[in-house]
Amino acid sequence: MPKDLKSMTAQSKSSPPPELGDLRHAIDGVDGALVALYAKRLGLVNQVLEVKKQYGLPASIPERVEEVIVRVRGEAERAGFLPDVAEKLWRLLIKEMIVYEEGHLK
Rank of each mutant, 00 (worst) to 15 (best):
E75K: 14
L37S: 15
L57R: 12
H104D: 06
K6Y: 14
V72M: 03
V72T: 02
V70P: 00
S15G: 08
Q47V: 07
V70C: 06
Q47C: 06
V85S: 10
D31A: 13
L37H: 15
S12R: 08
G103Y: 00
A79L: 08
R71D: 00
G29R: 07
P2Y: 06
L20N: 07
T9E: 11
Q11T: 11
L44E: 15
P83H: 04
V51E: 09
I94A: 03
P17D: 12
I94K: 02
L23R: 04
R78W: 07
Y38V: 15
E101N: 01
E50P: 04
A79E: 08
L42H: 07
G29D: 02
K53N: 01
S15P: 03
R78P: 04
K88W: 06
L93M: 09
V45W: 02
L20H: 09
D22H: 10
P2K: 14
L44Y: 13
E66H: 00
D31V: 02
Y100G: 08
F81I: 00
Q47E: 08
L82P: 02
V65K: 09
A86M: 15
Q11S: 14
G103V: 02
P83I: 06
R73F: 04
M1H: 04
K106Y: 09
E101R: 01
H25P: 08
G80W: 00
D84H: 06
D22L: 10
V72S: 01
G74Q: 13
S14W: 01
H25D: 15
G56F: 07
E67I: 06
R71W: 03
E19G: 02
S14I: 00
L44K: 09
A39T: 13
V68S: 00
V45C: 01
L5H: 00
W90N: 14
P62K: 01
R41D: 12
R73E: 15
L57Y: 06
Q47N: 12
V85H: 08
V85F: 08
R91V: 02
G32E: 07
R73D: 13
K106C: 11
M97C: 06
R64S: 11
